[in-house]
Write a protein that binds this DNA or RNA. Structure first.
Length: 368
DNA sequence: CACACGTGGGT
DNA sequence: TACCCAAGTGT
């Protein structure tokens, strides 16, 4: 790791901000410095690309224009607005923090990064972003871009996958943040990280700060940042039950914690559970086993048939799901009182938040 | 601290 | 396909 003189720091700030002034992207949340706008955009942008976020941000602001609107938002409406964005706890945490702002803070924003971290869903990165962009505090906002950019500029060898590495970067970046334009500085670093200084195929030759990029100058840019790899997703197999009445389909709400919390899907039966039953009844078919499980658990008699040849597949960060769809028809009169789900009509589904894996399943059913 | 937590895009 | 990556946080 190298360090910069005061003169070099000043040069870097001038160069970076001049480039930013000339080339910054026109994004919907850059039209003002309203902390609410900054906040919502920063949460949406966590682990999510700009192009994906733009339409969600526009719709969200139209539906929940102020902190008070967000604090009063019913969770299903909030999740529906978040549908397809992923990491749904972000949406629930937004509401929690909005309520904190309205009640604990009486609608007055805390203005420092240290204080902002008391709000649910706001960690060190987002706190730095809001404090610098909306309130002008001279603090870094260290996201994946900042880690990558400064690891190359300064040849920082610490593993950015390790939590403790943040301290090293904070200490290295804090003295470099522009004292007059901290918000623009942080956003410029992010723009740099998503243009010239990308993770793969960077274009440092044409970067506005190439003369400051020590890793590039030394011909070792491809060695930065240092980042250990994560575990691969593990396979989880399910049967998905498409139980249809003439006007509706049976859906269940997922538990309030864990994967896809509170979202709705077709009922899923883990293949593991089916195989346990088959171990004691080796001549039974998979379909019959699922029918018996549903009968035993929910007092519901079904006549299932396999709907799709290939399972519906979806890869999450840590799990790969494969769902074989099984279809059954029921009539409206059937007793669902033991079944932990609801018959939802097309109209109901328009206001029911579902994850992408459910959308994929529904699409597969439609094609039949 | 290590891991869970979604999704879409790129190679 | 499989893997990596993208404006991270909570537990």
């Amino acid at each position: 790791m190298i360090s910069w003189s005061a003169d070099k720091i000043h040069d870097f700030q001038e160069t970076l901000l001049a480039w930013y002034d000339a080339e910054k992207r026109d994004l919907p949340w850059r039209h003002d410095q309203d902390p609410y706008h900054v906040w919502i955009s920063e949460i949406m942008l966590q682990q999510t690309q700009v192009q994906t976020v733009i339409p969600y941000y526009e719709r969200f602001m139209a539906k929940f224009p102020t902190v008070a609107d967000l604090a009063a938002a019913p969770e299903p409406e909030l999740l529906k607005a978040w549908e397809g964005l992923g990491y749904y706890s972000r949406a629930r945490n937004l509401k929690k923090a909005a309520i904190q702002l309205v009640t604990d803070y009486e609608g007055v924003w805390p203005k420092t990064a240290a204080e902002l971290q008391a709000l649910t869903g706001i960690g060190p990165y987002t706190a730095g972003a809001i404090a610098s962009i909306a309130f002008g505090e001279v603090v870094p906002a260290i996201d994946g871009n900042a880690f990558r950019v400064f690891s190359r500029l300064l040849k920082i060898d610490a593993d950015i996958a390790k939590p403790q590495t943040r301290k090293i970067f904070e200490a290295a970046i804090q003295p470099i943040v522009s004292p007059t334009r901290p918000g623009d500085f942080n956003q410029a670093i992010m723009d740099l990280g998503s243009s010239y200084m990308t993770a793969k195929n960077p274009d440092s030759e044409h970067s506005p700060v190439k003369t400051f990029n020590q890793a590039y100058l030394d011909g070792v840019e491809d060695q930065y940042p240092v980042k250990t790899k994560k575990a691969r997703p593990i396979l989880k197999e399910f049967y998905g039950l498409v139980i249809e009445s003439p006007e509706a389909v049976l859906m269940v709400q997922r538990p309030g914690q864990g994967m896809l919390a509170n979202l709705w899907t077709y009922p899923l039966v883990a293949k593991e559970q089916v195989e346990q039953l088959l171990a004691d009844n080796p001549r039974m078919t998979d379909l019959a086993a699922v029918e018996q499980l549903v009968q035993d658990d929910y007092q519901l008699e079904l006549h299932l048939k396999q709907l799709s040849l290939k399972p519906v597949s979806h890869t999450f960060t840590h799990q790969k799901w494969q769902i074989t769809l099984l279809q059954a028809k029921i009539d409206e009169a059937v007793d669902l009182s033991y079944f932990p789900g609801k018959l939802l009509t097309k109209t109901d589904l328009a206001t029911t938040p579902v994850p992408t894996i459910q959308a994929k399943m529904a699409q597969t059913v439609e094609k039949q």
